[in-house]
Computed example of a mutant assay.
Amino acid sequence: MRGKNSATVPEGIAIPGRAARGGGTWLAFLGVLAFSGSFPATVYAMEGFDPWLVAIGRAAIAGIVALVCLKAARLPLLPPRPHWRAYGLISLGVVFGFPVFSGLALDLGASTAHAAVVIGLLPAATAVCAVLRAGERPRPVFWAACVAGALAITAFTLTRGETTAAWADLLLVGALLSAAVGYTEGGRLARHTPGWQVISYALVLSLPITVPVSAVLAAVTPVAPTPAALAGFAYVGLISMFLGFFPWYAGLARGGIARAGQTQLTQPLLTLVWAWFLMGERYGAATVAAALAVLVCVAITQRART
């Protein structure tokens, strides 16, 4: 059904109903669950591999797998030419930008908890990009809950007493902006292309860069492939860089980029759970309070109609 608002939706896609938006929220959360292990896995991977190799190599691994999947599905190995610009922005944002910036920040001393500041602010940045690029218009109550959730995560993380070098914080800001652009463009394309194809095409377009650069880095940098380092590398290459985007982009398309993207407010807390489970970090009552505050903010954003 098309009303007067249908003209504001790019690509002629109808505005999703309530059931579709709810399903999109859950799909997006599955993507967040997959992404939440990225920072701990990156730390493990960098114990045996150079940070640049981890950042670029993960995209090379994912790109090769994506190429095989497209071939097995008997689909074109390149996306339609009119969409190359959008896929280029996805590649710059989530294939290169976020992995490189966040990995170098972790290498400079930013802990997984401090890096959660990026994820705490990312939903707000994604919502802004959704307005600028995808034509979405959330209500004021959405923006209030979005800002409150970002502030809750930021305040919680900063009160943990984490300090990093200025360069690490600048790199985290770069990771934030890169991911926001990549998520928005991917969500737009996923309105008419399955999410797994969106990330696959972005990765395949990047292969002429990721494969040769990874090969050179593997040859000239120290490599110590311990089981933990290999497991971390495999996680960021297959889960963070590829499989996690299947439900994530599908969720953004169905639930709305700004709206479904707010599920990522839960990612810092999920990351802390991984850090507690894998790295032995301990947390107190402040963590529980922050978790409850974030859940309330996410619930409000999901009820606010776009």
Rank of each mutant, 00 (worst) to 15 (best):
G174M: 10
G255F: 09
A145T: 12
G57R: 01
W84M: 14
L278V: 14
V147P: 01
G120R: 05
A105Q: 11
A304L: 04
L77A: 11
A86N: 08
V173F: 13
G195F: 04
S102F: 02
F277M: 10
R254Y: 05
I61W: 04
A290F: 01
A134M: 13
L92H: 06
R303D: 04
W52G: 02
A59N: 08
A299S: 14
A231F: 09
A289I: 15
P10E: 09
P194Q: 13
C69W: 13
I239M: 11
A215D: 06
A14W: 02
E11R: 12
R58K: 13
F246G: 00
Q197S: 12
A134Y: 06
T263S: 13
A59W: 03
A260W: 05
R137G: 07
I64M: 14
A113M: 10
A62D: 07
A45G: 12
Y235F: 15
K71P: 00
T221R: 14
A86H: 09
A124Q: 00
R85L: 14
A231S: 11
W276I: 03
W167K: 07
L238K: 04
W84G: 13
A113K: 03
T154W: 02
G17I: 05
G93K: 10
I257D: 03
T163Y: 01
M279A: 14
G256D: 06
L121M: 13
A228F: 08
